[in-house]
Design a binder for these strands. Structure first.
Lengths: 189, 189
DNA sequence: ATAAAATGTAGACTTTTGTCATCGCTGAAA
DNA sequence: TTTCAGCGATGACAAAAGTCTACATTTTAT
């Protein structure tokens, strides 16, 4: 179960990591069925997850309970609500399994132990944070000024796998456009 | 000149920081006139800036050279292009003084020295990163699904100071709407 | 001080997007 | 198997946003 994570870490930090097995032992395996909610807004996020297989949706609700999807995250990537996890405060976001998913998770205690004992782990966290930030910046710069059609093109250029793998409804909520509009414009490409 | 930064750090980390004066000594003062470009896309970002007074705009150009403003940052806050600064790679963003601005800046060498010698400095960097990330996430979740009018209301609720302090053109480019539309809708509120 | 440039507002018009109703298809549950 | 709920596609229409022009005002440079 930890094979993916081991590969992931070795790829980023090299093979010579002293406490790699110790780190891995702090992760617990979890699995969820399609459509299960893993984190609900208002709850405190207890884990940082690494996705071994499957995919997660991170989303918020607006006042009419419509979903806006901030991110769709697939296998071999990290997922959490870092603000809630870091400060142990209520989450403003929800996380849902959009496919059957196998996760390995580290809780706050294990996380902090690792931060203190394993200097390399500190780097992993920083890389997660930096990558998450870079993603967000990229998305803001791309989306804020783009039309619906341009957003669809952006998705095809940047994350082509999503278009075929997930439902139109989900993709539309990720692009911030309505599913009818998405359906219409898709035909024009 | 370093007074603002000293206050800023003490506020966040408490008074008992051993090497505070050492850290502050690594910062160099800089100033720019209104409309001067501080970082141009394609260049490598050499500094992390702390704004003592004035304000900066972080923006990108689309294919027609229209500006989209990712962030407007005012005094007593940090500003940089962290991806470019961290990896010393070309920046995709521009930074401009939108008011006469007094900055203090730390370069990569000073930054790394501090990261190694002063454990507390490491925390400062993490806080910058976490705050930047939190901002971005908030902005994505807010903006992607909002109409022009709702974006204006969002700005009035979240950053009311900006509306009166800066030009409509700039605000519109921050909201991702056209200045004509902004002007029209503003009248309706 | 004066001229030139940039900005803010407004109206008219076009294009894009949102909304609603309908219909056929598919997959899940009884 | 049959029924039903959800999804995706489409057409008609309404609402919102973009575009262009004009003009008055403000700011900047000389």
């Amino acid at each position: 179960m930890t094979t993916n994570l081991r590969d992931h870490i070795v790829l980023r930090l090299g093979k010579d990591i002293d406490n790699l097995e110790l780190v891995l032992s702090k992760f617990i395996p979890l699995q969820y069925k399609r459509n299960e909610i893993i984190l609900r807004e208002g709850e405190t996020c207890r884990y940082v997850y690494f996705i071994c297989s499957g995919a997660l949706q991170v989303f918020v609700h607006d006042q009419d309970m419509n979903e806006t999807t901030r991110d769709i995250i697939v296998e071999d990537n990290w997922c959490s609500e870092l603000m809630s996890f870091g400060k142990q405060q209520p989450s403003s976001e929800n996380i849902r399994a959009i496919e059957p998913v196998q996760l390995i998770a580290i809780d706050r205690q294990g996380f902090q132990e690792m931060m203190e004992k394993v200097p390399q782990f500190d780097k992993v966290y920083r890389q997660i944070l930096e990558a998450s930030y870079a993603n967000s910046v990229y998305r803001i710069n791309s989306f804020v000024a783009l039309s619906a059609l341009e957003r669809i093109r952006w998705l095809m250029d940047n994350r082509p796998g999503l278009m075929t793998r997930f439902s139109s409804k989900l993709i539309a909520s990720y692009l911030g456009i309505h599913k009818d509009v998405f359906s219409r414009l898709k035909a024009k490409i």
